[in-house]
């Protein structure tokens, strides 16, 4: 098992953003995580990546208890993520944004790499996501679509075994969204990744995932193969009032 979270709790003041969530993810799986706005999906990612400390529960990654580990240690163990609102360093170029992920990775120290080597390796990851031509463009000059691709390249550069993608397709047009979905699929095969794929609605990741978890108000309310989850009345009820249907 790659990831095992047990009874995770995270509170913000009065809000319980993540309420007793337990989940298991096996090696090589692509698991979808969907839920309406504010259901706690991003908070869950933040707990696993170490951004937030949980108020209760335990997280085990590949047999190691990481509940108390710092974010930088978790990356070195092989956990990577992307951000829902791209969080790149806007004063740096695309290339530099991938390079620091390499500098922070475990292999950088183990192989005694230099900064130049890190930069040339970064070129490789930019090429994979198709951003090679934009390597010297400052991130603040990149459109959203390219920032999303760059986020994926940066996450890959840490050499992850498990990657959490947070709404990578939100705000993109259908063509772009489709490209991103295909890219994630391809990366999964090429790099043998285990993926937790967060989306607001199921439709766009329907064909890409094998199993879906549905969150609502901090709790996991349903779980199963995509075509079963769509029909689950509990899930349908959770999405009532939203303009986008499952």
């Amino acid at each position: 098992m790659v990831l095992h979270a047990n009874n995770l709790v995270k509170r913000f003041g009065g809000i319980v953003a993540v309420n007793n969530v337990s989940l298991k993810i096996n090696g090589g799986e692509v698991v979808g995580l969907i839920g309406p706005n504010g259901s706690g999906k991003t908070t869950l990612i933040n707990l696993v990546s170490g951004f937030y400390k949980p108020d209760g529960g335990r997280i085990v990654f590949e047999g190691i208890d990481i509940t108390k580990k710092e974010p930088y240690e978790r990356v070195k163990l092989g956990i990577a993520r992307t951000f829902q609102i791209p969080r790149l360093i806007s004063n740096m170029t695309a290339l530099q944004n991938v390079a620091y992920a390499i500098v922070g990775s475990k292999r950088f120290r183990e192989k005694k790499m230099t900064l130049e080597e890190a930069l040339s390796e970064a070129i490789y990851y930019l090429d994979i996501v198709g951003l090679l031509r934009k390597r010297d463009v400052l991130v603040k000059d990149l459109p959203l679509y390219e920032q999303r691709l760059l986020e994926l390249a940066r996450a890959l550069a840490t050499n992850p075994r498990f990657i959490m993608v947070d709404e990578v397709m939100a705000g993109l047009n259908p063509v772009e969204a489709d490209n991103v979905a295909k890219l994630v699929q391809r990366l999964r095969e090429e790099f043998k990744l285990t993926i937790l794929w967060v989306e607001h609605v199921l439709r766009i990741i329907m064909r890409s995932v094998e199993r879906v978890l549905v969150m609502n108000e901090g709790k996991i309310i349903a779980e199963g193969p995509p075509h079963e989850v769509v029909k689950n009345p509990v899930v349908v009820k959770a999405y009532i009032g939203e303009e986008v249907v499952l």
Partner: peptide, 26 residues
């Protein structure tokens, strides 16, 4: 000009990002 300077730059721009990508900020 070294990798340390590069890491300092990342910390300076966004500490949380630095930590999320393996830099020992503390």
């Amino acid at each position: 000009r070294s990798r340390w300077g590069f890491m300092l730059g990342v910390i300076n721009e966004d500490e949380d990002v630095a930590a999320s990508f393996g830099i020992e900020t503390k």
